[in-house]
Amino acid sequence: MTNFNHNKKPAPDEVARDGDAPRLSDDSQAFIGLKLRELYDDVVAEPVPDRLLQLLNQLGDDDSKATAKSVE
């Protein structure tokens, strides 16, 4: 589960080889990608909620699993 490939991006020919859907124009693909990231990045840009920060602090302050469990 931890063996992710770092920095590996799909080669252009891999993208173009998708055979089971019509090939979209570059403009359409770029348009969809742009919208998608706008939508997603809007959430990413939100501040981390306090309750998650508090949880992290509790996890970091105590190495025993009991504390982590009790939070939930």
């Binding site: 891999e14 089971d20 859907a21 979209l24 124009s25 403009d27 348009f31 969809i32």
Partner: peptide, 18 residues
């Protein structure tokens, strides 16, 4: 790859991009 490709294609249809 197939799911992404089909997702894009459906979005393009839904949004009349092409």
């Amino acid at each position: 790859k197939s799911r992404v490709s089909r997702a894009r294609a459906q979005l393009a249809r839904t949004l009349h991009l092409e």
